[in-house]
Structures are given as structure tokens and as C-alpha cells.
Design a protein around this nucleic acid. Structure first.
Length: 214
DNA sequence: GTCCGGAGCA
DNA sequence: TGCTCGGGAC
């Protein structure tokens, strides 16, 4: 079976099982960007608490958030964990957008993909997964997001070997699927669901998994 | 105690 | 390559 067909098969089974995920849960592109940083190695439930706090203070807008002091921001996002580093990372991101895109996130999201990606990666605290999450889920750009679940699932299903770096795994998906942002959006979200509910780290539930025998 | 839509540092 | 950041859910 070709990689192309296997990836399609995996998608079909996950979609059949979990249904449409409709990511990213947010009211604006800016909110997606904030959430992408806050959810780094963090349960999404905790992130929603921090996001809601920011929303209460009307801080889910560039000018308002950029005006916050780091310590003040850190205190607001405390429930998301790593609050000190994340406050710094958020302000680093906003500083870049302020300097290179005149403080307009939309300009970055409609910029050339590789240009925007490189600039995001140059921000201390924005790695490949966070950068791609922003491009796909905030910018609706056809970029496939790779995360720990993607690694685990692809590894256990022998689609990749151990030392496969981020870009390589990303290519597996991008070279074997239609380059469609809506598809990449759903696919990544479905992999997260599969990883969360079945392809668990210590005790995978293989026999009940929708990808059993794939 | 374990894990979470990671990333930077030595 | 390990260590650190960290609160909340289970």
C-alpha cells in the first residue's frame, strides 16, 4: 500500500470515528496566535482558563496585549503553566509583529508562507510546531502541523523511523496529500484526538483504536 | 504520581 | 542529549 493511500485511510478512519473537529476554537486569528503559545506542552483545558481571563480584560487584541508589562501578563496567564516563560514569549512575538508588520497580525498571516515562517521561528519561544500552528490555524495557510502525537502515531504505525526530524515528517504529509488548508486543519486535530484517547504514551489502547490494524 | 496542541539552554 | 519551566486534571 502506498503512503498516499495509507494517509488517506488513516484520515478516513479518524474522521469516521471522531467526526469534524472544527479547530481552532477561537474568536479571532489573534486569539489563535495567543493560544498557540499558551498551549505549548500544556493541556488545552488549562489554556482556556488563561484565554478567558485575557478576554475578560479585553487583552485579546494586539495593542492591548502589547501594552501589558511582562509580570502583569504572567499573572493573568498563570493557569496555563510556564507562565513566566510564556509571558516573555508572547511579548517577543508581539514585538516582532510590531517591528516587521506594523503591529498588524493580519499582515503577517497574509505574507509569503516561508517568509512568515522564518520570521516566526526567529522569535525566541516560537518553535516549528507553534509557528506552523499559527500559519495554519490563524492564517489558514496550507501548512501541516507536526506534534508529539503525530510522531507517536506515525512511529507506532511504522510510517517513519526514530530519527525523523520535524521537516521530514511534515513532508510525508504535505507530499502525499492535497495541499488543502481545510484538510490539514482537520487532519492534525484528528491526530490529536487519536493520541489523546487511544495512542496514549504509556498505555495505548490499540485494540479499541480506530486505527487498529492500519 | 503522570501527562499535557513545546522550546531554549548548557 | 538532559534539564527547566508549572498549573490543573485524572
Amino acid at each position: 500500500m502506498t503512503t498516499r493511500r495509507r494517509l488517506q485511510d488513516i484520515y478516513d478512519r479518524l474522521f469516521e470515528h471522531f467526526g469534524p473537529q472544527r479547530w481552532w476554537p477561537a474568536e479571532s486569528a489573534f486569539e489563535v496566535m495567543v493560544g498557540a503559545v499558551l498551549t505549548q506542552n500544556t493541556n488545552w483545558r488549562n489554556v482556556t482558563v488563561a484565554i478567558d481571563r485575557l478576554r475578560e480584560g479585553d487583552f485579546l487584541r494586539f495593542e492591548r496585549l502589547a501594552a501589558l508589562a511582562e509580570a502583569e501578563l504572567a499573572e493573568m496567564i498563570r493557569p496555563s503553566g510556564y507562565f513566566n516563560v510564556k509571558a516573555r514569549r508572547l511579548l517577543n512575538l508581539l514585538r516582532m509583529i510590531g517591528e516587521l508588520y506594523d503591529g498588524e497580525p493580519e499582515r503577517m498571516l497574509t505574507d509569503e508562507i516561508e517568509t512568515a515562517r522564518a520570521r516566526l521561528l526567529a522569535v525566541t519561544g516560537i518553535g516549528e510546531e507553534t509557528a506552523d500552528s499559527i500559519l495554519l490555524y490563524a492564517g489558514n495557510q496550507p501548512v501541516f502541523v507536526v506534534d508529539a502525537y503525530t510522531y507517536r502515531i506515525c512511529s507506532r504505525h511504522q510510517l517513519i523511523d526514530e530519527e525523523c526530524d520535524y521537516r521530514r515528517l511534515q513532508e510525508v504529509f504535505m507530499d502525499n496529500l492535497p495541499r488543502d488548508a481545510a484538510l490539514f486543519n482537520e487532519y492534525h486535530a484528528l491526530l490529536v484526538m487519536a493520541g489523546k484517547h487511544y495512542c496514549k504514551k504509556k498505555t495505548p489502547l490499540c485494540e479499541r483504536c480506530p486505527l487498529w490494524e492500519v
